[in-house]
Design a protein around this nucleic acid. Structure first.
Length: 569
RNA sequence: GCGCCUGUAGUUUAGCUGGAUAGAAUGCAAGGCUACGAACCUUGAGAUCGGGGGUUCGAAUCCCUCCAGGCGCGCCA
């Protein structure tokens, strides 16, 4: 495909003798398509060239040499150089590329097989998998697919919270109260009930905490009975989580959680000691970070135990050795910003600055309820993610009954649309802001939503089927494409790869989500205004090709976000 | 107290390496199905870009300051 932007930059570079890459970053897309397809703001060069912007613009316009296949015309408006590109050539490029690459259109190999380790989801075993875990799971899952699409080798790690005092609590509670609960139907529910009860009773009976510590100590020491119980609970939880992961289409390459690093932390502590980074402070062993305006990073508690920073360092070292990563991404809540800043700094001080520079914390806002309260497991207002997904599916099924009662595979469509609605809702807004969890909003399928995109896709698909269309670009007569009819949509299609690369650069899947909305809206307006199937065969061919291209890109984009496209809805 | 994040139509928001008229969606008002699918489309009203300074040809965007909300600031993760 022709890269119009870089061709323009190259041509301007020849005239001005300014670095091509620099010029390319200046090129913008005008707010209004009447002002051209690309714009070059000449103010940027005024200082370097010591000339007034309009003069620069005139000079560039007079001297620029770009082939007819690229350039249609250039106009000067204010200090801007408005560049109109050859639409026919653009369209040909886009159509041919999509027909050739199909659902790989937009992909690239800039990742070149380098490993990107993505740490996401990470539920706490023995605690409910609730709505709070949705964001990490969904954002991480989208990044996983996006990086793969760009040629990276994504490694998804589910850093399970499968170790710690919480297990002591569950085991102690289980031994005390197991006869009071029904384990025959839903074992995991019973365990959760025990855990919640333990936490409540613990407030009045501190001796329960002691008891939990004893149980956990026995687990750490490898006592057979506790280890067996631990395995049982872990497997049970994993099987339970898998149901949610199946619905969300989440994949992981490793489930190495905290327990996995249990025996790998001594080495880290030793290394820190060797490198003289550890300091005694208030009975604990810490890495002093005051030089970097940060509080100290605790490595060993005053009780002599390790802590999450220790585990994160151990896991980082493990990931360096195993994957030699190009990037290590942690999709973890905003509240842990400082923690990761500290851990990455300690890694740097340990003598791995090149890897520390490749570590990125990808934070996201809380999921809060309508009153702005954090939704957590402690207050008992927890909503299981699985139940939410199921409720969304039921809601969609009801809508299908109303709108399209004769639809085949209602359940399957309801799953794709309902789950898609929730995923898309989570991804369409900027990561860092809090997400308000509100049933009415979540299940409002109007407007900028997943179902809207799916609906537009289904329309493209049924239209192509009706026309018996197969993607043969050769017979398309591109001169038949009148600019005003579809060019906005085609320009969007052209930018798809740029969008994906930008989303990866910023670790921001919402860029893709919003792009898909734009594309769907753009096509939808086109579709509504113009008959696709018409008498004029040549025009029809162009429009069908466009329809095919839009459908293909919508599907690819949606898949990257972890959603599925229904064939009908 | 210190640090970080957030503040844009009634609501949810895009734009934030400064650039052309601040884009959407929802809700509201009006219109469009004898069908290439109305879960759609078209049109309209609705914004002191949290307040105040500053930097400059130009600020929602950069700097300072204040206000509001959230998160974090040593042995939970």
């Amino acid at each position: 495909m022709i890269n119009f932007k870089s061709e323009i930059a190259k041509a301007i570079s020849k005239i001005t003798n300014i670095n091509e890459e620099e010029l390319e970053t200046y090129i913008e897309i005008p707010p209004n398509s009447d002002l051209g397809d690309y714009a070059f703001p000449c103010f940027k060069l005024a200082k370097a060239l010591r000339k007034a912007p309009p003069i620069i613009a005139q000079e560039i316009k007079d001297q620029i040499s770009l082939g007819e296949d690229i350039l249609e015309k250039i106009e000067i408006v204010g200090g801007y150089l408005n560049i109109y590109i050859n639409k026919e050539e653009l369209t040909k490029n886009v159509f041919c590329e999509i027909a050739k690459k199909k659902e790989l259109y937009g992909s690239s190999n800039i990742g070149n097989g380098k490993n990107v380790v993505i740490d996401y989801s990470a539920p706490n075993i023995a605690k409910p998998f609730h709505i709070g875990h949705l964001r990490s799971t969904v954002i991480g899952g989208a990044l996983y697919k996006i990086y793969n699409f760009l040629g990276y080798n994504s490694v998804g790690i589910n850093y399970l919270g499968d170790w710690g005092l919480q297990f002591g609590k569950v085991m102690a509670g289980y031994d005390m109260w197991k006869d009071e609960y029904d384990f025959s139907e839903n074992e995991i529910q019973a365990i959760l009930k025990i855990y919640i009860r333990f936490n409540q009773e613990e407030k009045e009976k501190p001796e329960l905490t002691e008891k939990a510590r004893e149980y956990f100590k026995r687990l750490e020491d490898g006592n057979e009975k506790e280890v067996e119980t631990w395995k049982w609970i872990r497997n049970l939880s994993l099987a339970n989580y898998q149901k949610t992961y199946d619905l969300l289409n989440s994949k992981f390459d490793s489930y190495n959680g905290e327990s996995y690093y249990n025996d790998k932390m001594d080495a880290v502590v030793e290394e820190l000691k060797e490198k003289k980074l550890l300091k005694q402070s208030e009975g604990a062993e810490v890495v002093d970070l005051s030089e970097y305006d940060m509080p100290p990073c605790i490595i060993i508690t005053s009780a002599g135990t390790t802590i999450y920073a220790t585990r994160d360092l151990a896991s980082l070292k493990d990931r360096i050795n195993k994957y030699n990563f190009e990037k290590a991404i942690y999709v973890v809540g905003n509240e842990q910003r400082l923690h990761f800043k500290q851990v990455f700094k300690v890694l740097e001080l340990m003598g791995y600055p090149e890897y520390a520079a490749k570590c990125e914390h990808v934070p996201f806002g809380l999921v809060v309820d309508k009153d702005g309260e954090k939704i957590g497991s402690r207050k008992g207002n927890s909503v299981f993610l699985e139940d939410i997904l199921k409720e969304a599916m039921q809601k969609v099924e009801k809508i299908i009954e109303e709108k399209n009662p004769n639809l085949e595979d209602k359940k399957e469509v309801a799953r794709k649309v309902g789950v898609g609605a929730i995923i898309f809702n989570d991804l369409s807004n900027s990561r860092i802001k809090d997400e308000i969890f509100d049933w009415d909003m979540l299940l409002n399928f109007q407007g900028e939503t997943g179902p809207y995109i799916q609906y537009i896709y289904v329309r493209t698909k049924s239209l192509l089927e009706k026309a018996g269309y197969t993607p043969e670009i050769d017979h398309v007569d591109f001169s038949k494409l009148k600019e005003a009819e579809a060019i906005q949509t085609i320009k969007l299609l052209y930018r798809f790869n740029e969008i994906i690369e930008n989303a990866a650069l910023k670790n921001e899947p919402s860029i893709v989500a919003r792009y898909l909305i734009d594309l769907a809206q753009s096509f939808s307006s086109f579709y509504n205004e113009h008959k696709i199937i018409t008498e004029d065969k040549a025009v029809q061919d162009v429009r069908l090709a466009l329809t095919y291209c839009v459908g293909t890109v919508l599907k690819t984009g949606v898949t990257l976000l972890g959603m599925e496209m229904p064939n009908k809805m």
